[in-house]
């Protein structure tokens, strides 16, 4: 699957900034999640074995995406894992957006996984989810 995101060079000198986009809110959730997973490790080098089902809802998709990305960072430390993939769906339930996701990964193993940055937090610095020209975009800065 092709992911639409790019890491930003012009912002967040000491950290990691990326911009993800998609034709739908769900698509931008997927691309932003993939950018986050790749910031921590090369997903292709991570096997499965560890899995969490996560369900969250919010009327504000921007807040929902922020909380979801923050939860991924939380599990990295709480379970000591890095991630292979995070299949997700996003649906409308009345006024709210409902996220159903599976976080799939494996315990950190420096011998077999290509590890990247130990992300501390998803920040609100320049954080913005918006629709422009029929396309959804989000800009995220990770503290590393």
């Amino acid at each position: 699957m092709a992911w639409t995101f790019r890491f930003l060079e012009e912002i967040a000198l000491a950290d990691i900034g990326f911009e993800a986009e998609g034709e739908s809110v769900e698509e931008v959730f997927r691309c932003a999640t993939q950018a986050l997973l790749e910031s921590m490790a090369n997903p292709a080098t991570v096997s499965g074995g560890w899995e969490r089902a996560i369900e969250r809802s919010d009327v504000d998709p921007s807040a929902l995406l922020f909380d979801w990305l923050s939860e991924v960072v939380y599990w990295k430390d709480a379970a000591g894992v890095v991630f292979r993939e995070a299949p997700l769906t996003l649906t409308r339930e009345g006024d709210a957006w409902l996220l159903r996701a599976r976080l799939i990964g494996a315990p950190v193993d420096q011998q077999i996984q290509e590890l990247h940055a130990d992300v501390k937090a998803v920040t609100k610095h320049l954080y913005e989810l918006k629709r422009t020209g029929g396309c959804w975009k989000v800009r995220v800065v990770l503290d590393v």
């Binding site: 890491f7 930003l8 060079e9 012009e10 912002i11 967040a12 000198l13 000491a14 950290d15 990691i16 900034g17 940055a117 590393v144």
Partner: peptide, 11 residues
């Protein structure tokens, strides 16, 4: 203090 972004340094 940094002068170059992480992305640029990696490139």
């Amino acid at each position: 203090g940094r002068t170059m972004s992480r992305a640029q340094a990696k490139r």
